[in-house]
């Protein structure tokens, strides 16, 4: 009994870790490869979560819905809508200094939170959406469903990982890194900087949307508190920075590592006396903030630093 409990605890960490790995891979495409600063990960995550949830849930009098589409279609919709929003943000901001992109993306995230709480005909406001299906949910129940979902999440992580690896090594990725490292010389070489940046941002946002969708299907319930910027935006940045920005494997390692640390400290703090439990969440937040500073100053390249692919010459 003890062992099965532990096993399924591990499964839950791996599922959430997989969703974070997706967010990290997406941020790595934007920041690690493209040098674009996205401070509104929570916003794109939220749009993905709500899109996928609304597309797949059944009829309800409380919110928009009744499409009852399969989960895969929901995730596709999530990617599309999140990508579209990313396109709009990027189109406006990429020509300006990266600080402006940060402001606009964080602004979008905050506005979306307002929309989600206020437009209850779509989202059921702060009461949230319930009864969101899981993939293959009609055949499975209980704990075996968790295992299937684990496989589902990690299949998507692997697909995104291979796509990201391919992108990194492609001519497209090389141009992107050239732009990141030296904008002027890339422009002189005839690269359309704005176009590359917009594409990068859109791809990243679409993946963030998928991650949002997956989290909605995992918890089967979605409320505005699920898109807390602390848990989504900040934590993902710390994960990528610690794991190694520019390195896709580093992104996954960072996501799993930091998420395990975050969850393990929860076990520890839950044993504290009651008045300290609420405080402990602030202490954890404080530590995440400090960890980010340490990583920024001492381990900027992360656990797995970026390694440019070797040059290959055609014979």
């Amino acid at each position: 009994m003890e062992w099965t409990g532990l096993f399924f605890y591990l499964v839950s960490i791996l599922i959430a870790g997989g969703i974070y790995a997706l967010l990290c891979l997406a941020l790595n495409i934007q920041w690690g490869m493209g040098g674009l600063f996205n401070a509104g990960i929570a916003g794109f995550f939220a749009i993905g979560a709500y899109t996928s949830a609304i597309l797949t849930t059944g009829e309800s009098s409380k919110h928009l819905g009744g499409f009852g589409l399969p989960v895969f279609a929901g995730l596709l919709g999530a990617a599309l809508l999140a990508g579209l929003m990313g396109w709009a943000v990027a189109k406006i901001c990429v020509r300006l200094k990266s600080d402006y992109l940060a402001m606009a993306s964080i602004g979008i995230a905050e506005i979306l939170r307002l929309v989600i709480v206020n437009e209850s005909w779509v989202t059921n406001g702060s009461l949230g959406l319930a009864g969101i299906p899981r993939p293959f949910g009609e055949y499975l129940a209980g704990r075996s469903a968790d295992l299937v979902f684990l496989a589902y999440v990690w299949t998507i992580v692997l697909i995104v990982y291979f796509v990201a690896m391919r992108l990194y090594d492609s001519p497209w990725g090389r141009s992107l890194r050239a732009i990141r490292d030296n904008e002027a010389s890339a422009a002189a070489a005839g690269k359309n900087i704005e176009k590359f940046r917009v594409q990068t941002f859109v791809i990243g946002c679409a993946v963030m949307g998928v991650a949002g969708g997956l989290s909605a299907h995992y918890f089967r319930f979605l409320s505005p508190s699920a898109t807390d910027p602390l848990l989504v935006t900040f934590l993902v940045w710390v994960m990528l920075m610690a794991g190694g920005s520019g390195n896709n494997r580093g992104a996954i390692v960072g996501a799993l590592g930091i998420w395990s640390l975050w969850s393990m400290t929860e076990i520890f703090t839950n044993r504290l006396p009651l008045e300290w439990i609420t405080r402990s969440s602030y202490i954890r937040m404080l530590l995440v903030g400090l960890l980010l500073q340490v990583v920024l100053q001492k381990f900027r390249s992360g656990v797995l630093p970026e390694k440019s692919p070797p040059l290959r010459f055609r014979k």
Binding site: G35, F37, A39, S98, D99, A102, L230, F234, W237, M241, R279, Y282, I283, M285, L286, V288, G289, L290, L292, Q293, L296, R300
Partner: peptide, 20 residues
């Protein structure tokens, strides 16, 4: 941009200190 990222962390530090 690194300082911008750092300032995000500082925002978190300030807020959690206030809450604490």
């Amino acid at each position: 941009i690194y300082t911008v990222i750092s300032s995000f962390g500082v925002a978190l530090i300030f807020r959690s200190l206030v809450q604490l």
